[in-house]
Amino acid sequence: MQHALFALFKSMLGSLRDLLPIILVIGFFQAVVLQQPIPGFIDIIIGTLFIILGLTFFIYGLEMGLFPIGESMANAFARKGSVVWLLIFAFCLGFGTTVAEPALIAVADEASEVAALGGMIINTPEAMESYSNGLRFTVAFSVGLAIVIGVLRILKGWSIQYMIMGGYIMVVIMTALAPKEIIGIAYDSGGVTTSTITVPLVTALGVGLASSIKGRNPMTDGFGLIAFASLTPMIFVMAYGMII
């Protein structure tokens, strides 16, 4: 019991250390640059405590739940030997985790405003909502596809650099063709799709697959799924902007 408490205390100290830079930056700018008092001091202390507790729980849960399940599923799929089911799973994981992502919903809503103001769609709530939903499904589909491509790469042992470079070339081509208003949003959509729970799961899946397939190296083959998931949305969002 004492040992467990000590371990908990130690990991909370670790979380405090993770948080310290933000506290210092905000404190410095507030006190020295803007020369403003810090409002709601007690709120900040309570909030900081929550963040530290939350981060500690999250990391515990990561190693107990998210990592093991990702890896055990990767192992099970590899042993089962059914590529089709594995790819269906990969697609569902990418699509399902992205379509409900709050950050993506926010970006899609803002994008529909840009489109309405830019005259790409008519400026009514209905048109904007359908544009925003279309965008969300486009991004979610592209993330699903990305995980499928990434898993195929691990299975076949293709080297990642040429695939990523191919993706870059497509982004550049699409940039030249897509309407100017959509470019900023398209570029951003690559970054917002990968959430805090998806990342550990997808990473564990990739590393687990690469470790259970003979001839694959978990370091060079296991990573890279997230990279695809942040590249395909850019291409697809620009395509969406061209079609609508």
Partner: peptide
Amino acid sequence: GFVYVLIGL
């Protein structure tokens, strides 16, 4: 572990 992740987040 899942419950921890949920509470933590």
